[in-house]
Amino acid sequence: MKPANTQKLIYTALCVAIGLILPQIIKLIPIANIGAIISPMHIPVLLSGFLCGVPFAAFCGIILPPLAFILTGMPPIYPVGISMIFELGTYGALTAVLYRTTKGKIYPSLIGGMLGGRAVMGIANAIIFGVAGNPYGISAFISGAFINALPGIVIQLIVVPAIVYALKKARLVPAVQ
Rank of each mutant, 00 (worst) to 15 (best):
residue 3 P to Y: 04
residue 4 A to T: 13
residue 11 Y to I: 01
residue 15 C to G: 03
residue 16 V to D: 09
residue 17 A to H: 08
residue 18 I to H: 05
residue 19 G to M: 00
residue 22 L to D: 04
residue 25 I to R: 01
residue 25 I to M: 12
residue 26 I to V: 15
residue 30 P to A: 15
residue 30 P to G: 12
residue 31 I to L: 15
residue 31 I to Q: 03
residue 35 G to K: 06
residue 40 P to K: 08
residue 42 H to L: 02
residue 44 P to H: 07
residue 49 G to V: 12
residue 56 F to V: 11
residue 56 F to L: 06
residue 61 G to R: 09
residue 63 I to A: 15
residue 68 A to E: 05
residue 69 F to H: 15
residue 74 M to W: 12
residue 77 I to D: 01
residue 79 P to Y: 14
residue 80 V to Q: 10
residue 84 M to N: 09
residue 86 F to I: 06
residue 88 L to D: 10
residue 92 G to P: 09
residue 93 A to H: 04
residue 95 T to H: 06
residue 98 L to H: 03
residue 99 Y to H: 09
residue 101 T to L: 15
residue 102 T to M: 13
residue 103 K to V: 06
residue 107 Y to L: 14
residue 109 S to C: 04
residue 114 M to I: 15
residue 116 G to E: 10
residue 117 G to I: 02
residue 123 I to M: 03
residue 125 N to A: 12
residue 126 A to K: 11
residue 127 I to H: 10
residue 128 I to R: 14
residue 131 V to R: 14
residue 132 A to Y: 14
residue 132 A to G: 10
residue 134 N to C: 06
residue 136 Y to S: 00
residue 138 I to K: 09
residue 139 S to I: 11
residue 140 A to V: 09
residue 142 I to Y: 14
residue 145 A to F: 07
residue 147 I to E: 07
residue 149 A to C: 04
residue 150 L to N: 04
residue 153 I to F: 03
residue 153 I to T: 13
residue 156 Q to R: 13
residue 157 L to W: 09
residue 158 I to M: 11
residue 167 L to F: 08
residue 171 R to W: 05
residue 173 V to A: 02
residue 176 V to T: 09
residue 176 V to K: 10
